[in-house]
Computed example of a mutant assay.
Amino acid sequence: MPLTPAGLIEQATQDPVNAALLERLPALRLRQGFLTAGCLFQATWNRLSDKPPGWGVKDYDVFYFDDTDLSWDAEDAVIQRVQRAVADLGVSVEVKNQARVHLWYEQRFKSPYPQLGSARDGIDRYLIACTRVGIDLADGTLYAPDGLDDLAAGMLRMNPLLPMRELFLKKAADYQARWPWLRIVPPEGAPDDAA
Rank of each mutant, 00 (worst) to 15 (best):
residue 1 M to H: 11
residue 2 P to A: 10
residue 7 G to K: 02
residue 9 I to C: 07
residue 18 N to S: 08
residue 18 N to W: 02
residue 22 L to W: 03
residue 23 E to C: 03
residue 25 L to V: 05
residue 25 L to T: 05
residue 27 A to T: 08
residue 29 R to G: 10
residue 30 L to C: 04
residue 30 L to K: 06
residue 30 L to G: 07
residue 30 L to W: 08
residue 32 Q to C: 03
residue 32 Q to E: 15
residue 35 L to D: 08
residue 36 T to Y: 02
residue 36 T to E: 09
residue 36 T to C: 14
residue 37 A to V: 03
residue 37 A to M: 01
residue 38 G to F: 07
residue 39 C to K: 01
residue 40 L to F: 10
residue 41 F to I: 06
residue 42 Q to H: 07
residue 43 A to V: 02
residue 46 N to G: 09
residue 50 D to W: 11
residue 53 P to Q: 08
residue 56 G to C: 13
residue 60 Y to P: 07
residue 64 Y to I: 04
residue 64 Y to N: 04
residue 64 Y to C: 05
residue 67 D to Y: 01
residue 68 T to M: 06
residue 72 W to R: 13
residue 72 W to N: 12
residue 74 A to K: 00
residue 74 A to D: 03
residue 76 D to W: 11
residue 79 I to Y: 08
residue 81 R to M: 06
residue 82 V to G: 02
residue 83 Q to R: 14
residue 87 A to T: 08
residue 87 A to R: 12
residue 89 L to S: 03
residue 91 V to N: 12
residue 92 S to H: 12
residue 92 S to Q: 14
residue 94 E to K: 13
residue 98 Q to A: 11
residue 99 A to N: 06
residue 103 L to I: 11
residue 105 Y to M: 08
residue 107 Q to R: 13
residue 110 K to M: 09
residue 111 S to Q: 13
residue 111 S to L: 06
residue 112 P to S: 02
residue 114 P to F: 02
residue 114 P to A: 14
residue 114 P to S: 08
residue 118 S to C: 06
residue 125 R to A: 02
residue 127 L to T: 04
residue 130 C to N: 03
residue 132 R to A: 15
residue 133 V to P: 11
residue 133 V to H: 07
residue 134 G to I: 13
residue 134 G to D: 07
residue 134 G to M: 10
residue 135 I to G: 09
residue 138 A to K: 11
residue 139 D to I: 08
residue 140 G to I: 10
residue 141 T to R: 15
residue 141 T to G: 13
residue 145 P to V: 10
residue 146 D to Q: 15
residue 148 L to F: 08
residue 153 A to D: 14
residue 154 G to R: 01
residue 156 L to P: 00
residue 158 M to E: 15
residue 158 M to Y: 05
residue 159 N to G: 12
residue 160 P to M: 13
residue 162 L to H: 14
residue 166 E to Y: 06
residue 168 F to K: 05
residue 173 A to D: 01
residue 174 D to R: 12
residue 176 Q to P: 08
residue 176 Q to H: 10
residue 177 A to P: 04
residue 178 R to D: 12
residue 180 P to D: 02
residue 181 W to N: 06
residue 186 P to Q: 09
residue 190 A to P: 00
